[in-house]
Amino acid sequence: MSRFSKSILSLAFAAVATSAFAFETYKGIGRPATPAEIKAWDIDIRPDFKGLPKGAGSVSQGEVVFEEKCASCHGTFGESNEVFTPLVGGTTKDDIKTGHVKALASGDLPQRTTFTKVATISTLFDYIQRAMPWTSPKSLQPDEIYGILAYLLNLSEIVPADFVLSDKNIADIQKMMPNRNGMKTDHGMWPGAPASKGGIGNGGKPDVQAKACMKNCKTEVLIGSIMPDYARNAHGNLEDQNRNFGPVRGVKTGESTVSAPKNSPELEMATISGCMACHGLNNKIVGPGYNEIQLRYKDQTDAEDRLSRKVRAGGQGAWGSIPMPANEHVKDADAKTLVKWILSGAK
């Protein structure tokens, strides 16, 4: 072999060796994430508290934040069922000892609260940090979150009123979570490696084993439940929810809405602009109902201007402490149209 062909061979080997590194495969695609970028986005907190920010907050500090930023949806004591399911309630002193919420098995609970279900306190910190408050997620500081959690733990009678929760003692509180032993993973619905191989679950073995009988499979048909009469028309006129040609028709369960007048252009605008997610025409949702706003401002001459600005800039305090977020995507003229419509009795 000549020296020349040898050098070609060694070059070829070098190329093979290089392409074994995957990052060369997609040359020019992607770039390294900077430490600051990773810090900005890597906000998750695991059950072993990896990712938990340092900080501390007392029950009483938490109560202040909760009242200001959480209570309008969750109720002052985290008990409200008005907007979301309750956070607190249904757990006992005995549950704190055993780590099993007894009422889950006995069926005594009218409704499962967050504290009856959650086994890991890290979950609550992680979720509050990433997604709360509802209209301005990721705005809470770590100390505020420690405080809110301390307040909720106090409402659940897990910690006393003078308690201060911090990154130092949160692992101890984990040992008192009322449903900390309430989870099991011995099922067949985890799509990864089973527990026997370091993963989760039983490796995909189904818990319900049915057979496919074909003829004379049973002697009688047992009906467990039928459509209750009161629910028959609870979903509007089903006739309007099916084509008016084809093999079947929808059952008439109410007045047709097909020929009913369309929503007003203002209501369409309010819906597209996202207003109706928080305001009802005649009811409070997260923010006040439009009927309440009209009632309060209808005689104030400057209301139209003031409220139009507020639609776009946001605000807080006029209707309780939950803030109205800024809506810069709503054009100035549209904000005025919407406010005019609200003040004239939005329909």
């Binding site: 059950p47 007894k102 098995a105 979950t123 979720y127 993973t185 099922h187 985890w190």
Partner: peptide
């Protein structure tokens, strides 16, 4: 190297069984 017990696998999307235990990480 470990599962995360996020809100939607520790508060919601957990399956309550008759014995009062919840099945966690049900996915399939």
């Amino acid at each position: 190297d470990k599962p995360y017990a996020t809100k939607d696998e520790a508060v919601h999307y957990i399956d309550l069984m008759p014995d009062g235990q919840h099945r966690q990480y049900t996915s399939i």
